[in-house]
Amino acid sequence: MSVQRRFSKFLGLAAVGALTVGLAACSSGGDGGSESGGDSGELTTVGFVAVGPEGAWREANETNIQDTFTKDAGFDLKYAPATNLDQKSQIDAFTSFVDEGVDVILLSATEASGWEDSLERAQEAEIPVILLDRGIEPDDTSLYVTRIAPDNVEVAKEVGAWAVEQFPDGGNYITLEGPAGVGVVNERNEGWNESVEGSALVQVAAQTANWSAEEGKSVTETLLKANGNDVQLIFAQNDEMGLGAAQAVEEAGLEPGVDVKIATIDGTKAAMQALADGQLSYVHEYNPLFGDTALDVVNKTLDGESVDSYIIVPSEAFDSAEAAQAVLADRKY
């Protein structure tokens, strides 16, 4: 999977005719081609150590950042996506930003651990580092300015709370998870369990569907049979799996939203549409659009103001067709 990412990046770069620059970026993690250098004397230089192609959410997120830190806004953003989600390429990019002496570094780490040395170097060079979305391990807040991210645990907790409220008399539920062992999956499980524990809801199965609609459908289809259709709730940890589950529920002769309620996290446009159509019952956004927050934090940091060490990006919950309908028109992702 990672290799194909590289390829799509490759294609993109080729398209803008920056093939050689792109190849260099793979190894040095330098200028990824979004900016062609030039005189940036009055501009604030921002190095963005990014994740790169990963999915719709990431794309919305990184595009949003790039659209925010524009030249018009007074920034020269150097975008350096990881090669193959490889941490080493990120560290290389990070180091070269430090050597270049950029004004501020934005970091979305592909892996949580192993950042201490790099962050210390940035600190010595007096370059502030702001974490976007992904945190680091161990979480030494003295090494960075702040982390801006929606909170997975918090979001999942809200979904759980909704579920408990919907089923005061209890019921059976299935959890559709992402790939085993991924941090997001653990966090979403953690938040959900926090709310659901002690309630009358019973988890009859938890199974990975690898974030995919097709697998979500296939897994749900079998789990429904394994439980004799005695399932009232499905918690899908992302939208795609939930959308697949909805189709499986229908094909099993059950009615989504009536017989089986489906709750998902992410809030993509397709999920909003499904919520509006009554296929899904609850969608919790996991807000990727926090460019403005980041811009604000960067400005404050450069002005010497202090900010909180963790800024939670607010995410909205949608629990009705009407609510979904209202935002559908200008949903960006």
Binding site: M1, N210, W211, S212, E214
Partner: peptide, 12 residues
């Protein structure tokens, strides 16, 4: 089956 193509997961 789901009338959706997921470019990173279909056929993965």
């Amino acid at each position: 089956t789901v009338m959706t193509v997921d470019v990173s997961r279909t056929g993965y």
